[in-house]
């Protein structure tokens, strides 16, 4: 926890994590990426951050289907933790499908900033970052 990560990737697909890291790196070498392979680990990390009063990453890309704790589960836990979180966090739901039931369910979570469909390409990512950091990459 020496360097504060800017972006949190939560996905059980390790290949996806690798590729996302690579893409983000291509956009900006300044952004620090941290990854977790399931929701439970991510919740543990955020809990730890709130306990230590450390700032959280600005963006979280959250996969829906994951073992141990899936995207929805994570969001439920995140809701509980939110009052303790100091800074603004943008959470993007990332899914390989645009299933209606998922999209509808996602819209019920006000913690969510957006819903992104895999594969997330460089242009999409750049736009998301631009919105958040108000910078041109």
């Amino acid at each position: 926890m020496n360097t504060k990560p800017n972006i949190l990737l939560v996905d059980d697909d390790e290949l996806y994590l690798y590729l996302m890291q690579k893409t983000i790196h291509q956009i900006s070498k300044e952004l620090v990426v941290s990854t977790f392979t399931d929701g439970e680990q991510a919740v543990e990390y955020i809990t730890k951050c709130t306990e230590e009063k450390v700032e959280l990453p600005e963006v979280i890309f959250l996969d829906i289907n994951m073992p141990f704790l899936d995207g929805w589960g994570f969001l439920n836990e995140f809701k509980k933790l939110k009052p303790k979180i100091i800074n603004n966090i943008n959470i993007y739901m990332v899914s390989s499908s645009m299933r209606d039931s998922d999209v509808k369910r996602a819209s019920n979570f006000e913690e969510l900033t957006g819903y992104v469909v895999k594969p997330v390409n460089k242009v999409q990512l750049a736009e998301i970052f631009k919105k958040i950091y108000h910078e041109n990459w």
Partner: peptide, 18 residues
């Protein structure tokens, strides 16, 4: 359907990215 579209899609998309 979900299994196919989701679980199969993710490696396929990954592959296309690679």
């Amino acid at each position: 359907n979900y299994l196919i579209s989701h679980n199969l899609r993710s490696p396929v998309t990954s592959m296309s990215v690679i």
